[in-house]
Design a protein around this nucleic acid. Structure first.
Lengths: 148, 148
DNA sequence: CGCAGGAGTGATTCCCATTCTCATTGCGGG
DNA sequence: CCCGCAATGAGAATGGGAATCACTCCTGCG
């Protein structure tokens, strides 16, 4: 799913990809400021729009930092992250199977680890595309999807 | 760490805890609407303030749904979540060691699983309270912590 | 008992990340 | 060369969350 739909590789999109590969999990605003250094006329709206497009096309990934702000990732494979609760910074975690994960993060990255989370992401039965009957009696008033 | 600091158990705080135990991972706004049913004079600001206080006191936990909105959890033990990308709903995952996790989530909860994340949360070396020298030469312009 | 000081609160405003609107631009095909 | 549509720039709108402020309510103490 999420095939590289028809999408033009425009200069602003190319620049976003370049900056994304260079910086480590930047926010939309960081990307915006970097892209502007070479394409000064690019607007913030364009950056957001294209990040959305690139993600839909499967070229980049979105993630959330510890405060809930979106950050973007050029790596497409599954991997772990460490997220700083203070500044929002996000780092990749190198997984070395022979060492306990928390310990190696503290040693290798200098983070003071306070916790971890394992979460799964998907679509709940109420939102399932096939909409198999099932109008929830509980929490009935929930509005339909609606992108945030 | 995070000892139950001195904190009065006021009616609004009690109501928040009650509603939190009843609903499953509500947002601040959902808690607000529920609390208001019994304490109609409570304001949204109070709810946000008290959620912050309760979390600092270690009585509740904060988590982020798939869209980055904060949700609150009365359970204090470590456990996994499933998060719906469409509506934001979050469910607890029952971990049964004898079955593959994704499979049991699909079966038990009806979610269509699209992915998972393992992430660690902590404080990065630059934000470490002891501030051991280390002013980053890379990415120098980063402003100091500053809550969001 | 009366009071000072601090915690808690309601109402409101502010801030900022993200989205939306809309007029304009420019590429690609005919 | 012209049309149509995707892409864009500029800026307004949205919405979650935090902050401000004046006021109320305890609580400990004299």
């Amino acid at each position: 799913m999420a095939e590289p739909a028809q999408m033009r590789m425009t200069p602003s999109r190319r620049a976003i990809l370049t900056e994304l590969a260079r910086a480590c999990h930047p926010t939309a605003d960081e990307i915006y400021r970097r892209v502007r250094r070479r394409l000064p006329r690019v607007s913030l709206g364009t950056v957001y729009r294209n990040l959305e497009v690139l993600q839909t096309s499967g070229l980049i990934r979105t993630l959330l930092d510890a405060r809930g702000q979106r950050r973007y990732d050029a790596r497409l494979d599954d991997h772990c992250h460490v997220r700083c609760e203070e500044c929002g910074r996000v780092d990749d975690v190198r997984v070395l199977s022979e060492r306990p994960l928390e310990e190696s993060i503290e040693d290798d990255h200098g983070y003071e680890i306070r916790g971890h989370q394992l979460s799964f992401v998907g679509v709940c039965p109420e939102c399932a595309p096939d909409a198999k009957g099932r109008d929830s009696s509980i929490d009935a008033g929930r509005p339909r999807p609606q992108r945030r």
